[in-house]
Simulated scan of single mutants.
Amino acid sequence: MNAGPATIETSTAGGVRTLRIARPERLCAVDVPTMCDLIDGLQGAVDDPEVRCVVLTGTGRAFSAGADLRELAQPSPAPRAAELLATHDGLGGQAPGTRGKAVIIDVCNRFVLAITEAPVPVIAAVNGLVVGVGNAFALAGDLVLASSCATMSFGFSKIGLMPDGGATALAPARMGRGAVARMLYAHETLDAAEAMRVGWADEVVPAEEFDAVVAERAAELASGPTRAWAASKASLAAGLRPELLRAMQAEADGQVALAETDDHRGAARAFAAGEAPTFRGR
């Protein structure tokens, strides 16, 4: 795992492994070391016969503000990323990507696919803000629990980019194309109640009760028929997998190309300056 500052916090109780993104100062935006630790953390949970459910959550005000854009087109500083992407072994090993052009996309794809492949239920415990690829992390989960204070948006088009992490397959599968289009083209931000209404979330929990309800739901799954859960999950995933793999590859190709455009570069500068972006069009 990453030898630098902790990027995730891991705990286990009653057969439940919790993976918590621990970057509150960045609103739990993920960089390459964080993604490597999440992949390793999920693989470790699956390899532990005592773990029967996994909870993925964030810290502070955010579940995840998406990928750290500073790494979009940069070489990875994490040796662990090279090791992970050099092999197809383990969870998510068949995830398509950019062939090293944007390592952050490659490791995000691998993590999202790993969530769908894990033979134990994965609960996305959405404690707060979700932006960008954070949507894919949540929507890949088997059960999405949202705090009443959570909000969800794509945010990609504001900076001249497109959804990634398989979101263009995962979001329509849950929400339908119309709801996804509103989030994408109208820059719509969903509150927790609307997220549940359109299918983004499965349950909304009052913020003050969120941790207790997540623990209760996870305990219920961990005490259930683990083999039956695994077989059911594999059957559900089999129907989505071809479309998810196709979407990941199309997104990876598109995102790499978009990162080189004047639209993205100008929008990123405007975003950093707190200004409205302008786009040149076709």
Rank of each mutant, 00 (worst) to 15 (best):
L245V: 09
G4L: 02
V51F: 09
R52D: 13
R269P: 06
A257M: 05
R197T: 11
D164E: 12
A272C: 10
I115P: 10
T98F: 01
A81G: 08
A118F: 10
V205T: 06
A138C: 08
R227P: 08
V120P: 06
P75L: 07
G44T: 01
M1K: 10
P96V: 00
S157P: 09
L161G: 09
A138R: 03
A173L: 14
F210C: 07
E50L: 13
G176A: 02
E83T: 07
A173Q: 11
L258T: 12
G224R: 00
P206C: 10
L19Y: 09
H264A: 09
V133F: 15
A3L: 15
E275T: 09
A146Q: 04
A82W: 03
P79D: 05
L129N: 05
N2K: 02
L170V: 13
R182S: 15
A124F: 08
T34S: 06
A179C: 02
A171Y: 11
W200S: 01
G4V: 02
A250P: 08
N2M: 06
A218R: 04
A138E: 02
P96K: 04
I105R: 04
L258Q: 15
A150L: 12
G266F: 04
G100D: 01
R197D: 10
L143C: 03
Q249D: 12
I115W: 01
T151P: 10
A29S: 11
A86P: 06
A186K: 14
V46W: 10
V131P: 04
T87F: 02
A272I: 05
G128T: 02
R110V: 05
L145P: 06
A230M: 08
R20W: 08
A62P: 11
M175Y: 02
E83Y: 03
R17P: 01
G41A: 09
A150I: 14
V46K: 13
G176R: 06
A82Q: 09
E260F: 05
L42T: 00
R280F: 14
R70Q: 03
A13R: 14
A136I: 10
V54K: 03
K101A: 14
R246L: 06
T116E: 04
L236P: 03
A171V: 12
D89E: 14
F111G: 00
A150Y: 11
R282M: 13
I39K: 02
S11A: 15
S147Y: 04
A252K: 01
A118P: 07
P49L: 07
A73D: 13
M248W: 05
T12H: 03
L139D: 10
T226W: 11
A257F: 06
P75A: 05
S76Q: 02
L72S: 02
G93T: 09
S76W: 08
H187C: 11
Q74F: 08
